[in-house]
Design a protein around this nucleic acid. Structure first.
Lengths: 119, 119
DNA sequence: TCATATACCGAAAATTTATTCGGTACTTGT
DNA sequence: ACAAGTACCGAATAAATTTTCGGTATATGA
């Protein structure tokens, strides 16, 4: 299929393993979005990350479900409704997300100066 | 040029900023390699990461120098010699690397079972 | 002399990832 | 009747990243 990774995660070493789970462009943001534990509908996630193409979020959410970071519940209603909720495994990654958030906040000015204003 | 990124880092949000600095396939491993503070020659780094194509390490090291995570010293000798050393900024990322290492170690078994032995 | 090692770079190919576009299906609100 | 919202998917395209290959240049050791 078109959007299946050849190698889902990287088992070369523990560091690469962790990275491979979150390094796709929006996965860390999705985890951050779901961190509260509140289930969220796909359209809500799309709205919270408007820079991301909806299709990419679909695909990355699917991978995260496969990896066990996120759970999906489909409600057999019409119009269709589904929800994504962070799992225990996903939650265990939140401290890492937090440290990256903090690091980014503390060092933002360096890169803003170096690489441009972005207004 | 062929191997210059269009957008060096991602200034969209602090989380994306941090991720964009380390998400390339081998950057986190390079940081882990240089964490001791000891300068290392390119060939040593290549030998420590034999799965990575040398060309990729060259390119990623260059970007990391540009981003200020790593310093390069060139000795005007023949045969040529150069050394890479982690900077203060790079060192400040090591706690994140550590957490990812630890998470990967703790949860390795889950993914080994799910995605295969790798013997 | 010749293989090996060092550092580095360009170009092309291969691979992976992201984006865009269009389509299915059903509902509610105008 | 029709637009808009919801969820989802396939396919084509675009972009980014990684890999491979070959080349520059010089020195050392067999």
């Amino acid at each position: 299929m078109a959007y299946e990774k050849k190698i889902p995660v990287d088992l070369d070493c523990p560091l690469r393993l962790t990275m491979s789970l979150i390094e796709s462009k929006w996965k860390s943001c999705i985890l951050d979005e779901l961190r509260s534990g509140e289930p969220q509908r796909p359209c809500e996630i799309h709205r919270c990350l408007p820079e991301a193409a909806p299709r990419v979020l679909d695909i990355q959410l699917k991978e995260m479900v496969e990896d066990g970071l996120v759970e999906k519940t489909i409600y057999p209603e019409l119009p269709p409704r589904s929800e994504y909720r962070i799992t225990e495994l996903g939650l265990s990654l939140i401290p890492i997300i937090d440290q990256m958030l903090q690091w980014g906040t503390e060092h933002y000015y360096i890169f803003e100066r170096k690489y441009g204003k972005k207004t």
